[in-house]
Every structure is written in structure tokens, then in C-alpha cells.
Design a protein around this nucleic acid. Structure first.
Lengths: 172, 172
DNA sequence: GTCTATACCCGGATAGAC
DNA sequence: GTCTATCCGGGTATAGAC
């Protein structure tokens, strides 16, 4: 609320973006802001509350990155992957592990999923399958699970072609 | 090598299976075996080495669980999901985050991926896309990312149908 | 709102005796 | 191969002064 809280969240976002979720400690966060860790507790009840704000922020960022590509499946997929590769730690933070839903700004989770839902033509099964494919591709890439020389563009195309196939006509 | 090392790995596996990777601490591991934590270092150089053995174990387990279903796409998918749901923590351990490849028994990673590769008809793009889909579905389910009432069986069917579609004839 | 001081807990790992 | 004793580092969070 007060400008200070936003500064804290921004610093926390930067910390995670640069070094991963584990890098976010109250001490490091304080140091980045030029204050001591205990002072942070005047603005947030605990670390979880700060982290939740960063998740909210990241989900809005992702939604913003996907919006321009809404409507076209391969563009959307490219935008999704591009965000994940540009901000792997933030991507992981918001898409892995348990989600503190009660601490998130209402609607952000849905907003981030909307473009995907839309491109699936309102078919929830297709939307979920597509989401799983996209998330799977991204997280396996981030985790270095594909072989070194693997042509992931090609794998993406293959997968997207499958989903654009029967029962769901392409966009053109 | 000595029977003791296997006991340690088994205990570590049980610990993770029950409570997740974070539950594996050298103290907890020792306690489970009725010895003190420092004694473990007579058998393993560090915690990472123990963990790597558990990953190797889990990958062999997964491969064993998939083998009977090899050949049929939907059976294979069902077996994959079933293992993940039965052992969510082990699944996560071996399929999330960086993999200490140099500490794994050679070939296990490939062995676990073989059935999937086979069902994709040797098409690496298709195999990778399929793997991404399956892993995505499983990990999103484990992380509670789908809406509470979501019909995941249906989403699985939709996704599998897409992958069984054009360019890759069904098995019958 | 910030500070210092500190409590508290937990982890991995080592030294050296037996 | 197991023990005890211990080091060392790191984290979250609180109390109370300013």
C-alpha cells in the first residue's frame, strides 16, 4: 500500500529473478533495500506474504506477455516459452509447488490462464492438455532434462500440430 | 556395496517417499537406522551421494512400472500417472530440478524414458512432446494446479487422442 | 520505521576417541 | 563403524530502544 511495500516487493522480485526462490531471504532482501531484515516485518507479517506478492506480480507479467499473442496458437506458445526462458526463476516460482492461493490477488491466476483457455476454443479438456504440454516442455527445458543437442523447436511444432489437429480447426 | 549402504539408501528412499525430499536429513536418516548422523559419512561422502542413489532407485522403479504397459499409449500413460500419484515425492525427486547425472548409475535415465520413446514409434519429436504432456499433466496435478473438480481423465484422453492422431497411426 | 541484540531452530559436516 | 562433542553457517522472527 504505502510506496515502501511496493519497493520491497520489487526488490524481492529482482532477487528471485536473478538467483531463484532460495535467494529470497529476509536478510538479503533487507540488504538490497539498505535496511535490516527485522525492519521488513513492519511492512509484511512474514516472508510468505512477500513471496505471495511476487507471485501475483509474476502472474500479471506473464499475462501481459501472452496478451499480444492471444488468438494464435503458435504465437501464444512462443510467447509462453519466451517468458519462461527470460525469467526461469519467476516462472518456476509461480508454476511449481503449492500455490498460496489465499494470499494472491483474486483473479490473477485465472487471468494468466485466460489466453490459453481462449485459444483452446473454450474446450477445457483441450485447454488443460495444452497447458500441460506447454508447461511440460518449458519446465523440462529449464531443468535441463532434454538431451544437449535436442531440437526443441521441432518438438514444440510437433506437439502444437497434434493439438491443432482433429476436432479443433487451425486459426486460418 | 556393503549391505549397509543399501540399507541406508532404502531408508532414504522411504524417508523421501513418506515426507518429501526436504525430509531427508542426515540426522533423520541416521535416526531411522538407529545410528547417529556422523556414522553415515563412513558409507557415503555426503548427502548428495545418498540422494543420487535414491534417484537411481526411483528411476528403476518407474521403468519397472512402465514396462508391462509398453506398446500401448493409453496404458503407458495410465501407468505413468499411477506411479506418480502413488509416489509423488519420488516422482518429483527424479523429475524436477537439476539432475546429478554424473552420480547416477549409467543408463537409468535412458531406461526410464525408453517405453515412451518406443510408443512414439522412434520419432524423437513426438516422444519429447508426449513426455512433456505426460509430465505436465502429472506435475500440475501433484501441485494442485488444476481446479478442484477438474475431470483429469478426460483431459488425459483429449491429449492422448491428439498425440495418437495424424502422422502417427494408433497401435491397432 | 528503523535500529541492535538476540532467541531459536535447523541443517551439513568434521575431529578424535573407542 | 560407531560414538560424542562440536563447529559452522544459515534461516525466520521477536523484543525493546530510538
Amino acid at each position: 500500500m504505502s510506496g515502501r511495500a511496493e519497493q520491497i516487493v520489487d526488490a524481492a522480485r529482482a532477487l528471485i529473478d536473478e538467483g531463484g526462490a532460495a535467494t529470497l531471504t529476509m536478510r538479503a532482501l533487507g540488504e538490497r533495500l539498505g535496511i535490516r531484515a527485522p525492519s521488513l516485518y513492519k511492512h509484511f507479517p512474514d516472508k510468505g506474504a512477500v513471496e505471495a506478492e511476487v507471485i501475483t506480480l509474476a502472474m500479471r507479467e506473464l499475462a501481459g506477455a501472452l496478451a499480444p499473442a492471444a488468438g494464435d496458437l503458435s504465437e501464444l506458445a512462443a510467447a509462453y516459452r519466451a517468458y519462461a526462458l527470460a525469467h526461469p526463476h519467476l516462472y518456476r516460482l509461480m508454476n511449481s509447488g503449492p500455490l498460496p492461493r489465499h494470499l494472491l490477488a483474486p483473479g490473477v491466476e485465472e487471468a494468466a490462464a485466460l489466453p490459453l483457455m481462449h485459444v483452446a476454443g473454450g474446450d477445457t479438456d483441450r485447454a488443460r492438455a495444452l497447458w500441460a504440454f506447454a508447461h511440460g516442455m518449458v519446465i523440462l527445458e529449464l531443468d535441463g532434462r532434454f538431451p544437449p543437442g535436442a531440437d526443441l523447436d521441432s518438438a514444440w511444432r510437433t506437439g502444437l500440430a497434434a493439438f491443432a489437429g482433429p476436432g479443433q480447426p487451425p486459426t486460418y
